[in-house]
């Protein structure tokens, strides 16, 4: 240990002698200086290259006729054939519409509620009540998609489910909820709200607690009501975070709920429940004549739309003078 120390010490001495005028280090020197950090980064970077960037490269099969025997590189180029096939597919507009309307519905429904919940929790004085409200409202977040959908199916089951029972009790006709395409989106969105409203409000609670309490004190002195304080102090305080979350949600809007949509799907509600992702999955992995290229083309198309959306929204947010992602 001591030997190492003295060696390092000498080095430091040398440095201070040679660099009388501090000079910019060259790139090589900078790289050398922290080589140990790069060593640490090797594994994560290999992972990224292998499992993230290699598939991005693999996505070129969208422009090819992929055949297992020829591999990704050896397959023949076919240009935009698969994209055109998708655009001309008779159900193209319906699937697009389902995807867009479902994500938009979800976005609109799930955005304001956590804010409202956070604001009301914030004004609760009783600590015990506050803690237990938080505890219980976070809990459903940890239920898995599968179990969640299982619960939905049990509740909405015709004849046996609780919803049917309540309806019949009050003299309404029983409805096969999961079999009606017109209910699919609402069930999907509101069960999602039920599951996540508590957890999403954590972030707003954090933002609220970082608001300077002297603002509130001053407002109280000036005789501002609670509503006024919410409107003029709390809301502006959480606005930047709200906007960033909105941007992020927009960015993810076409992929997050895919597993749930897939699980909630049945032949009866397919008319509104078929979205791009489920279609990609079916074309590529489920159907008898699995078509990897066609499926990749649709997936790629969706990813690019997603990226463009994200960039656009981010630019809009920046123009509006609010926070942006980068």
């Amino acid at each position: 240990m001591g030997a190492v120390n003295s060696k390092e010490y000498v080095k430091v001495e040398l440095k201070s002698v040679t660099y009388v005028k501090p000079r910019e280090k060259t790139t090589i020197q900078k790289l050398k200086q922290s080589w140990r950090l790069y060593v640490l980064l090797i594994l994560p970077l290999v992972y990224l290259a292998l499992f993230k960037y290699a598939p991005m490269f693999g996505a070129i099969i969208a422009f090819k006729d992929y055949q297992v025997s020829k591999g990704i590189l050896g397959s023949d180029w076919v240009g935009f054939k698969h994209f055109l096939r998708f655009f001309h597919w008779y159900d193209f507009w319906r699937v697009m519409w389902n995807t867009i309307s479902l994500s938009f519905y979800q976005l609109v429904a799930s955005f304001p509620l956590p804010i409202i919940l956070a604001l009301s929790i914030n004004y609760v004085k009783n600590q015990f009540f506050k803690k237990s409200v938080q505890m219980i409202s976070y809990a459903p977040h940890f239920i898995s998609v599968v179990v969640m959908v299982g619960m939905i199916l049990l509740f909405f089951a015709p004849r046996t489910g609780i919803i049917s029972n309540i309806l019949v009790l009050f003299g309404f006709a029983d409805i096969n909820w999961m079999g009606k395409p017109e209910y699919f989106q609402s069930i999907y969105v509101w069960s999602g709200v039920w599951q996540n409203v508590g957890f999403s409000c954590i972030i707003y609670l954090a933002a609220l607690s970082s608001i300077d309490p002297s603002l509130h004190e001053a407002a109280v002195v000036d005789g501002a009501s609670k509503l006024r304080r919410i409107w003029h102090i709390d809301l502006p305080g959480i606005m930047p975070i709200a906007i960033i979350l909105l941007i992020l949600n927009f960015g993810n809007m076409m992929e997050l709920g895919f597993e749930k949509v897939l699980l909630m799907q049945n032949p009866l509600n397919l008319r509104t429940s078929e979205v791009i992702d489920t279609y990609v999955y079916k074309v590529g992995l489920v159907s008898e004549a699995a078509n990897f290229s066609y499926s990749s083309a649709i997936g790629l198309f969706r990813n690019i739309i997603n990226l463009i959306l994200l960039l656009l929204i981010n630019r809009m947010a920046r123009k509006a003078g609010q926070a942006s992602l980068w």
Binding site: L41, P44, L45, L48, L50, F51, K52, Y53, A54, P55, M56, F57, G58, A59, I61, Y66, I72, G251, D277, V280, Y281, G284, L285, F292, S295, S296, G299, L300, R302, N303, N306, L307, L310
Partner: peptide, 22 residues
Amino acid sequence: FIMFLFVFTMFFSGGLIPTYIL
């Protein structure tokens, strides 16, 4: 630059099928 390599994968991916093939 390295950070960009990481973050970029959050917003764009090769997709289901290429990952499956890999």
